[in-house]
Design a protein around this nucleic acid. Structure first.
Length: 117
DNA sequence: AAAGTGACTGTTA
DNA sequence: TTAACAGCCACTT
């Protein structure tokens, strides 16, 4: 069975180092689904916020902010706390210095990680 | 099966 | 710096 899009998305997310962040769009691109940023958001949306095995909190939007939404039932604020806990300054609007903390992996390394399964 | 929805984005004003 | 908009993908009605 070939890996599902969800599996690839979660694998890439799992590679984000502590203290770093990346965007929905970049995760999609690295996982092999350029342009599918919304799908990444949807996949992460249904993760259990309490499960930090997958660092879902290290994914923010392209404007460099946590995507705040009433539908998240507070997981957006949990995300803020988790990021603060990793040393990333997040203001009350959920905005953070994206350029400074952006994860820039070697694409080949990501490719191989996905291939290995 | 068409229409609505959302943890998205790049462009434009 | 915002904000509105049109595209975007997959899922749900």
């Amino acid at each position: 069975m070939p890996p599902t899009a969800e599996q690839n998305i979660l694998r890439v997310t799992a590679m984000i180092p502590r203290g770093c962040v990346t965007t929905y769009g970049r995760v999609a691109e690295l996982a092999g689904y350029f342009g599918a940023a919304r799908q990444v958001g949807w996949v992460l949306h249904r993760q259990d916020p309490a499960n930090t095995t997958i660092p879902w909190h290290r994914v923010v939007n392209a404007t460099g902010a946590i995507s705040m939404s009433a539908g998240r039932n507070g997981s957006d604020w949990i995300q803020r706390e988790l990021l603060l806990g990793e040393g990333i300054p997040v203001d009350r609007s959920g905005r953070l210095p994206l350029r400074t903390y952006l994860w820039t992996p070697d694409p080949l390394q990501v490719f191989q990680a996905l291939a290995d399964g």
